[in-house]
Design a protein around this nucleic acid. Structure first.
Lengths: 132, 132
DNA sequence: ATTGCACACGTTATAGCATAACGCAATTGA
DNA sequence: TCAATTGCGTTATGCTATAACGTGTGCAAT
């Protein structure tokens, strides 16, 4: 997909995510946008839905949060499966793409005649800076 | 970890999960155990916490649900990283272990000096039986 | 120009997931 | 016996996500 023009709400949400140092929950985003007129969760969720569709934002399932894609200007859907390392101490996220992992996983699902739609790989732990 | 004796609540929760054909949410488990005296979510969550610790139950992050481990009698923590294929139509879950995937992912986190604690791999899609 | 459609938006309400904080009872081990 | 630990029950609360309704705007087909 190539990214259409963002609406005002989408741009506001994306901007907050891009400037954040760590993934944000929808409600945290909402709070950051109250001054811009945001009032209800749905305003955030609707924007996020589109941003996910455009491939400029990722959802981190294991922490119910959202993060801007590390490859600005590109559609992350084109990178194959994305893996994330999430620091549980500072929240920092590292994004990673590995074709071998893709290949193994897709080979397996294929052998099961399973038709994959969306794949999540998330590694929670401690980043270098936060390690004791 | 080797599994200590389960308490009554843990056994009830585990039993419900083992007999289920698909992952269950904590609240669904609660409803199934009302007749056994369960009243509050915490009774379920506390049992689940232990069952996860014992390695006899998995949490599926992407659907906020829980499933009994496919390897009864063993501690799933010993199998390395576990991947799940989750059918979005019928709910069925297939469990999978692949050392090559483990190896690639762990090699990568190592190169990042990232210390992994818990890894999630979940593939949502359609199982063979549910495919059109 | 008018009609119809698609889409984004705003609002209220509600559903679904998870934990905090309190107190009690049973068990264990010093 | 005493203290520490663990499990349990209950109430209350907080966080995450969506349903349902209505409004406005832009645009294309007639």
């Amino acid at each position: 997909m190539n990214t259409p023009q963002m609406t005002r709400n989408q741009a506001l949400v994306f901007d907050v995510l891009e400037k954040a140092e760590a993934p944000l929950s929808a409600y945290t985003i909402l709070d950051k946008l109250r001054d811009q007129g945001f009032r209800a969760p749905l305003q955030v969720y609707r924007a996020l839905e589109k941003l996910l569709e455009y491939g400029v934002v990722h959802r981190l399932e294991s922490i119910n949060s959202f993060v801007a894609c590390a490859h600005p200007g590109e559609d992350c859907h084109s990178h194959g499966i994305v893996a994330f390392a999430i620091c549980e101490s500072c929240g920092q996220v590292i994004e990673f793409h590995d074709h071998e992992v893709d290949h193994r996983l897709m080979g397996w699902v294929r052998s099961q005649k399973f038709k994959p739609a969306k794949t999540t790989i998330e590694i929670r732990g401690t980043c270098e800076a936060c390690a004791a």
